[in-house]
């Protein structure tokens, strides 16, 4: 697993996550820069206590990295538990998703054993596409947070350190995810949750919040308690994260009505006229002759007449940290409890 002797963990906190138009159209959550910086600091305590020696952090121009830097500098003065050495990746910042891609590549080259990602489905998609061989510890700071965990950062920090330091084995700590592969000519993109074909011909403000704009939907998994576009499929037939298949559906105005929360605060009735399973490796051709494709809730790809995008399901998507299993294993192994303490267990 480890090609470096240093126990090194990466952190990518997307400064842009949780701020798009869905704050306006759907009352979606706001994750401020200050809260993201706080979450990073809540990771550092467990990292320091459980054997992480080095943290590689993505810089940004929006204040997360500078707040963390200030905290790192004052941490010893406040006599808090030791944090690991925090190093900021040296990269030219462009202010877009390419910053996360570059940071992920540089963390991989520097020997990071796992990358903690703070973002929504979109941020995780970008990092997973950039470094498919590196496992991700996921934290939700986005709009639709279907793929990443909704969890206190401290706990994710403990599990991340247990895995990175080798205390809990890879086979237990990590889970394999599915992904969708979207092809348009030479362009290949991935989605971790859903790929949605829309009538909107431009990427624009990226989000989708009007159901009449949806023509087709492809899902890697669809859970009935999830938010976002995958919930449309889930309300017809759930597809678990572990199932070796996905699902696809198409929409027409006179189809069967399905009530689904397609965005935070937006419960809409969607007309579905076809629903079927997606088997891995079988490409599905998009039917619309023009429009755009949203990957994990955000329009990313515009296609025009004469272009036919293809969507297929792959089972060898990114590995993510299973925090619940990792902590359960650590408890069973006695990693977190002092063995000198006599406990009366019933």
């Amino acid at each position: 697993m480890d090609h470096s002797s240093t126990v090194s963990v990466g952190i990518i906190a997307n400064p842009a996550s949780g701020r798009d138009i869905r704050r306006l159209t759907a009352k979606a959550s706001v994750f401020s820069t200050a809260e993201k910086a706080n979450m990073v600091q809540r990771l550092l305590g467990p990292f320091g206590a459980l054997g992480v020696e080095q943290v590689l952090m993505m810089p940004d121009t929006r204040g997360i990295a500078s707040a963390v830097r200030r905290a790192v500098e004052t941490n010893p003065a406040r006599e808090l538990p030791a944090w690991p050495r925090v190093e900021f990746i040296e990269q030219d910042l462009l202010g877009g998703p390419e910053d996360s891609q570059v940071a992920a590549h540089l963390m991989e080259q520097a020997g990071a054993r796992i990358i903690v990602v703070l973002g929504g489905d979109g941020t995780h998609r970008v990092v997973a596409a950039a470094v498919p061989a590196i496992p991700l510890a996921t934290l939700s700071t986005g709009t639709n947070n279907v793929f990443p965990d909704w969890r206190e950062a401290t706990v994710t920090g403990i599990a991340t350190a247990l895995y990175a330091s080798g205390r809990v084995a890879r086979q237990v700590a990590l889970r394999r995810n599915k992904r969708l592969r979207v092809e348009l000519g030479d362009r290949i993109e991935i989605a971790l949750v859903d790929a949605c074909v829309t009538r909107l011909t431009h990427v624009g403000a990226r989000a989708i919040w009007e159901p009449e704009t949806i023509t087709e939907l492809f899902v890697a998994f669809a859970e009935p308690d999830a938010i976002g576009l995958s919930s449309i499929a889930a309300m017809i037939e759930p597809v678990s994260r572990d199932a070796p298949y996905g699902a696809h559906l198409s929409c027409t105005p006179d189809g069967r009505r399905v009530l689904a929360p397609i965005a935070p605060g937006v419960l809409e009735s969607i007309a579905v006229d076809h629903f079927g399973r997606m088997e891995p490796g079988v490409p599905h051709l998009v039917h619309a002759e023009r429009g755009s494709i949203a990957l994990d809730g955000e329009r990313e790809i515009e296609f025009h007449r004469g272009q036919v995008p293809k969507v297929s399901l792959e089972l060898d998507g990114p590995e993510t940290l299973n925090v619940t299993e990792t902590l359960a294993a650590a408890v069973a192994l006695g990693v977190l409890a002092d063995s000198r303490v006599e406990l009366e267990l019933q």
Partner: peptide, 26 residues
């Protein structure tokens, strides 16, 4: 101070969003 001006919106109880100003459609 908060780097994103939109972050100030929540303090006033209004929605705040960020868009790419080079993209007319956004």
């Amino acid at each position: 101070s908060c780097d994103n001006i939109a972050d100030r919106a929540s303090a006033f109880g209004m929605p705040g969003v960020i868009v790419d100003g080079f993209d007319f459609f956004a």
